[in-house]
Amino acid sequence: MSADPREGAALDIADVSHHFGQRAALSNVSLQVGRGRFTALLGPNGAGKTTLFSVVTRLYSNQNGRVSILGHPLDREPSRALARLGVVFQARTLDTDLTVAQNLFYHASLHGIARRAARDRIDVLLNRVGLADRRNDKIRTLSGGQSRRIEIARSLIHEPRLLLLDEPTVGLDLESRADIVGIVRALVREEGLSVLWATHIFEEISSEDDVVVLHKGRIVARGLAGQIGTAGETLEATFRRLVAEPVKGASPKVAA
């Protein structure tokens, strides 16, 4: 991380809480995704990952705290913030009766992209995810892994600088999972994209990644994946220890 992670962070979430009725889904969550960084949001099911994504994508307005995307506050400049954000949701959200290209053109129009510019961009992205030959096929003829790759292409169509992925590899076989991880890591490496990747699969995290551990709506640990636990402890062992402990107060453990 740079000296001051808030300085120009791609995503800056400060002190965000969210309640559904009486139940707190998020309590005083603060996290930053540095520019050009792959940040893993690690948490068991029900930890609040999807709620956090919903707040960042403005499906719910945050009840407390602040969210900024590349310096644009989500509450005051929602359009500019959303224009720089790409999202891959956990649920499959492509129109299965439409073709790959029709789905991508639709999404390009949602970002105000002219048809010709969209056509060029779609060619580039389909090559990037290795599905240029499926351009005119209906989504329902694609495998789960291929649909996911199309969803990644779709999320990049407006050239966002920050990409959020909510458990993008759930339900995929090992090979497809490796493809998806490889595509996104290449984007970080080659194009300097900033990524927040929610997961509970440890194999998807490498030791140089930033990791934020979310548990019961609170952040219980953060730091570089390789340094988050005590010496000699694997990330998985650290994670299991952290989620087994009762959640105390709002102060997270911060790794060195």
Partner: peptide, 14 residues
């Protein structure tokens, strides 16, 4: 998982 980025400089914008 392979990752060639260097954590010391990864925070600065490319």
């Amino acid at each position: 998982m392979s990752n060639t980025s260097n954590p010391a400089v990864a925070g600065s914008p490319p």
